[in-house]
Design a protein around this nucleic acid. Structure first.
Length: 221
DNA sequence: TTGTGTTTTACGACCTC
DNA sequence: GAGGTCGTAAAACACAA
């Protein structure tokens, strides 16, 4: 008897790349019970192994606690041959990013330099038990995230600047309207609107352009 | 529990040096 | 050609209803 269960189909699976296989094999009859052998492996849909999976998913490297971190471990019943509980494989990079201290080893490396040389890449990969490609992709995505955050920040600054300019524009338009009103009806220049046009008088001179003369503020007595 | 929005991982296409 | 960005899919995750 051999059961093959597909686990955690990644997007790559649909594109013909990676799939995790849990193989459940019946290895004979002992005292009336089948012995169940569970194998966890990784292979692509084409049957070849992937670089990242080689390093992170090889059965001999994988600790059970790592695989089922935060999840109930699956139990296999020899009586029924059924596998219960939900199976979930922690994305190794996610875990690695959390490990090695609070901010994460990868984050620390990124703070030092946002790009890594192939040498640094493989160093980090070996320290975190990840594939070099996983590390490279993590840095790519991290750079993209930084850029996105910067863009958002710039966008917010521009919005703020725009709002301030709009406000200033409104104020100036109001001033222009008041001054225009003064030009058409100077008699309306009362005490109330004097305050809104401080220190200014409108002079009507000889025919030609009308000028606004700014004076000095009057002292209160 | 479920629906929904966000984040993370991974990839292919394309670009640049 | 190596290594970068960009756009995207899908899984994982967070959280409100």
């Amino acid at each position: 008897m051999e059961l093959e269960l597909s686990l955690g189909v990644s997007p790559a699976l649909a594109k013909g790349t990676a799939m995790h296989i849990l193989t459940c094999t019946s290895a004979g009859d002992r005292e009336g019970h089948d012995e169940l052998v569970l194998e966890l492996g990784a292979r692509t849909a084409k049957g070849d192994e992937l670089d990242n999976l080689k390093t992170s998913m090889q059965p001999e490297d994988v600790q059970e606690e790592d695989l089922y971190q935060g999840c109930p471990q699956p139990t296999a019943s020899a009586e029924t041959g059924s596998v219960s509980s939900s199976l979930r494989v922690e994305v190794p990079v996610r875990q690695a990013a959390k490990d090695k201290g609070g901010t994460g080893f990868l984050e620390d490396s990124f703070k030092e330099h946002s790009t890594v040389t192939p040498r640094q890449n493989s160093d980090i990969a070996s320290q975190l038990n990840l594939g070099p490609r996983q590390v490279a992709i993590w840095f790519q995505n991290r750079r993209a995230r930084t850029k996105l955050l910067q863009t958002k920040e710039e966008c917010e600054n521009l919005k703020r600047g725009c709002a301030a300019l709009t406000q200033e524009n409104r104020r100036l338009q109001g001033e222009v309207a008041e001054l225009r009103a003064l030009l058409t009806n100077p008699a309306s220049f009362t005490a109330t609107n004097q305050s809104s046009v401080p220190f200014g008088t409108v002079q009507r001179g000889p025919p030609g352009p009308i000028s606004l003369v700014l004076g000095t503020p009057r002292r209160k007595c």
